[in-house]
Simulated scan of single mutants.
Amino acid sequence: MSDHRGLMDGVYRYQRHIYDLTRKYYLLGRDGLIADLDMPDGGAVLEIGCGTGRNLIAAGKAWPNAALHGVDISGAMLETARAAVTKAGMAKRVTLAQGDACGFDAKALFGRATFDRVFISYALSMIPDWEAALAQAAHCVAPGGKLEIVDFGQQEHLPAVWKRALFGWLARFHVAPRGDLAAALADAADATQSRSYARALYRGYAIRAGLCRA
């Protein structure tokens, strides 16, 4: 955890101040994911890899009765997130904690082990042991709940030169789109008695995936 935490703090120590302004142009599908959460009244939501808090704030506006929780490995990002949720007037609704997506104790951090909705937005592509993070996320979903994911896709219906350029650029920021996300999610679904789905967005630019627990 310490090595990856140090890397993420280094990457975002300065970027966090312009992160939301720049990422809105290419982190596509985030708002669609939030709109699809379909939160039960008074339900609890957890974002894994919450970053600057942008998505939690959007979820709070979309679902005003939801209890919001976020975990991130980067202390620098959490500092920005805390300031953002306070500015948005959501400090009493949002609980933020530092933890490794691959293995955190939700009960210890948030006082609950499972959540009605769990989502991960453009974070799996930055986590070295992303399969472990995916398994951890699946186990945080309450019975009858959902895990929703959006991330970079494989660009399968876009020009090959575009894919090479995008993947090369993303690698500079320690981002690696996960080509076998659908298969790993199916394994996580089997382990939690859930059903999974995956579909391409924007000609493969992004992927939306998730699972629903019985």
Rank of each mutant, 00 (worst) to 15 (best):
R117Q: 03
M90G: 01
A58M: 07
A113P: 00
D129A: 11
G153S: 10
A186N: 13
R23S: 15
D38Q: 12
A97S: 12
I48Y: 08
T22M: 13
G153K: 10
S196R: 03
T95E: 09
I127Y: 14
W130F: 11
A76Y: 12
S74Q: 10
A171I: 06
L96N: 07
S194H: 02
A138R: 06
F119I: 03
N65Q: 14
G144R: 04
L211V: 00
S2K: 14
A108V: 01
G43F: 03
Q154I: 05
A62N: 05
D187A: 14
I73V: 15
E156G: 03
R199S: 00
P159T: 02
D72A: 10
G51I: 07
A189D: 01
A200M: 11
P177F: 08
L28V: 11
L109C: 10
Y14F: 04
H69F: 15
A76M: 11
A84L: 00
H4C: 05
H139C: 11
Q155I: 10
L33R: 09
A108T: 07
T114H: 13
A189M: 03
I48D: 05
L46R: 09
G53K: 06
D129P: 00
G111T: 11
L56A: 09
G75E: 13
A108L: 07
R82F: 00
D31W: 03
M39I: 11
D105L: 06
A67F: 04
L46G: 06
Y197R: 11
R199Y: 03
D151V: 07
Y12F: 15
A209S: 09
A91H: 04
A209R: 08
K92V: 04
V161G: 01
S196C: 02
Q154F: 05
S121E: 01
A81P: 08
G29T: 02
L21M: 07
L33G: 09
A83E: 14
L181Q: 11
A101Q: 06
F173N: 08
A67P: 00
A214M: 07
D105K: 05
F173V: 00
A209H: 08
R13P: 01
W130S: 05
